[in-house]
Deep mutational scan, measured.
Amino acid sequence: MKVIFLKDVKGKGKKGEIKNVADGYANNFLFKQGLAIEATPANLKALE
């Protein structure tokens, strides 16, 4: 799953980066902790 990092995550990505991560990692950790959002077309456009 492609995500946009909202904060730096050690060993995974930095704020503003768009990366592929495992679905479970994104859903169970990144999204719940507010560290990333899904890289949907709307979210990508808002990032610009």
Rank of each mutant, 00 (worst) to 15 (best):
A42N: 10
V21I: 08
Q33M: 15
K2H: 08
G11N: 12
N28P: 03
E17R: 01
L44C: 08
N28I: 08
A46T: 11
D23L: 15
K19F: 07
G13W: 12
I18A: 04
M1F: 07
E48C: 09
L35K: 04
G34S: 06
E17K: 02
Y25R: 05
L44Q: 07
T40M: 02
G24P: 09
E48S: 12
K15R: 12
G13F: 13
K7E: 11
F5A: 00
F29I: 13
F31H: 01
P41I: 10
F29L: 07
L30Q: 01
N20Q: 13
K15T: 08
G24D: 15
G16T: 01
A22N: 14
N28T: 10
K2P: 10
A26I: 05
Y25G: 05
E38R: 09
L30F: 02
D8W: 12
V9R: 00
K2I: 13
K2N: 12
G11E: 05
G11P: 03
K7R: 11
K45G: 09
T40F: 03
F29Y: 14
V3D: 00
K32E: 11
K45H: 09
D23C: 10
V3Q: 01
K12P: 01
K7P: 00
G16I: 00
N43L: 10
Q33R: 14
E17S: 06
N28Q: 12
D23E: 15
F31I: 13
L44G: 03
N43V: 11
M1R: 09
K2A: 12
L35M: 09
L47K: 05
K10V: 13
Q33C: 14
E48M: 13
V9A: 03
L47N: 09
G11A: 05
K12V: 15
N27D: 08
L47I: 12
G13L: 02
L30I: 02
E17V: 04
G16N: 07
A36K: 00
L44Y: 04
N20Y: 15
L6F: 03
Q33W: 15
D8I: 02
L6H: 00
K15G: 03
I37A: 07
A46H: 12
V21M: 07
K15H: 05
K7G: 07
G11D: 10
F31S: 00
Q33T: 09
L44H: 04
M1E: 03
P41R: 09
P41H: 11
A36W: 03
A39I: 03
K45T: 10
A26H: 02
V3G: 00
A36E: 01
